[in-house]
């Protein structure tokens, strides 16, 4: 069955991570495959090592055991804080990423404007980060990660600091960007509804040490919303499982 599928975008094979020689085990032989163009949400309570796993996939850190391979090479990463360069306008922030990718100077401006337009920010291109709202900054950060033009996009709780209305809008925008660009997205969150709203697949991780507890395949419907009954149903199921995992830490 799997033989007919294209090669996976990310392969995790028995990945374990321990910080320091005698530190606690953060990740315990995590194995997973993420298909090309898939939208996967990585969900778990604090201490499940989901951000650690993301850093390993990003190549920012090395696993203690096992192997991480990203078929397309390095991945683009977006963090919880937008981390825009405060001395550059929105457009220049994107242009800097284009420049580091090797895009010739003459093309950068047009390409940056295209990317900002993709996140509905063409009108704010010349504003500086401090003149943007939190949601706008995250969209600039999204445009900047798209500027890297890497097939895999890793997102580490990118909307956690936003208010609910803004987050809802960004879910819609991210879904649209994903459908338009065909990126493989690994989205780390501790928000169950967010995972159920966005993911084609939701991977629940247990905490201390981080292991894959369970996975859900979500029907990929175009009109899914955070209020949709199927999202609510799935959220309840995931939350029950998540609580079970958390209770195990009580003893």
């Amino acid at each position: 069955m799997t033989a007919t599928l294209p090669p996976p975008a990310i392969v995790l094979d028995g990945v374990s991570k321990r910080f320091g020689v005698n530190g606690p085990l953060v990740l315990d032989s995590v194995s997973a495959q993420i298909a090309d163009g898939e939208f996967v949400c990585l969900l778990g309570a604090s201490g499940c090592g989901k951000s650690t796993l993301l850093n390993l996939i990003a190549g920012l850190d090395q696993p203690t055991a096992g192997s991480v391979s990203v078929t397309s090479g390095r991945a683009a990463v977006m963090f919880q804080e937008s981390a825009l360069f405060p001395w550059l306008s929105a457009r220049r922030n994107v242009e800097l990423a284009l420049g580091l990718r090797g895009v010739p100077r003459a093309q950068r401006r047009a390409e940056a404007m295209e990317l900002l337009d993709l996140v509905n920010l063409a009108d704010a291109a010349d504003r500086r980060p401090h003149e943007l709202s939190g949601g706008m900054r995250q969209r600039v950060a999204l445009a900047r990660s798209l500027a890297q033009d890497r097939p895999v996009l890793l997102m580490d709780e990118p909307f956690a600091a936003l208010d609910a209305i803004t987050r809802d809008l960004l879910h819609a925008e991210l879904e649209q960007v994903w459908r338009a660009t065909g990126r493989t997205i690994v989205f780390v969150t501790h928000n169950v509804r967010e995972a159920a709203r966005l993911g084609q697949r939701v991977i629940l991780m247990s905490s201390r040490p981080g292991r894959i507890a369970r996975e859900w395949q979500v029907d990929d419907t175009n009109q899914r919303r955070i209020e949709s009954p199927e999202v609510a149903r799935l959220s309840i199921e995931i939350t029950d499982e998540l609580r079970k995992e958390i209770r195990r830490n009580a003893a």
């Binding site: 509905n120 709202s133 209305i165 809008l169």
Partner: peptide, 11 residues
């Protein structure tokens, strides 16, 4: 998006 941006950001 444009409406929310106008509400949330100040020039």
């Amino acid at each position: 998006a444009a409406g929310l941006d106008a509400l949330q950001s100040e020039r």
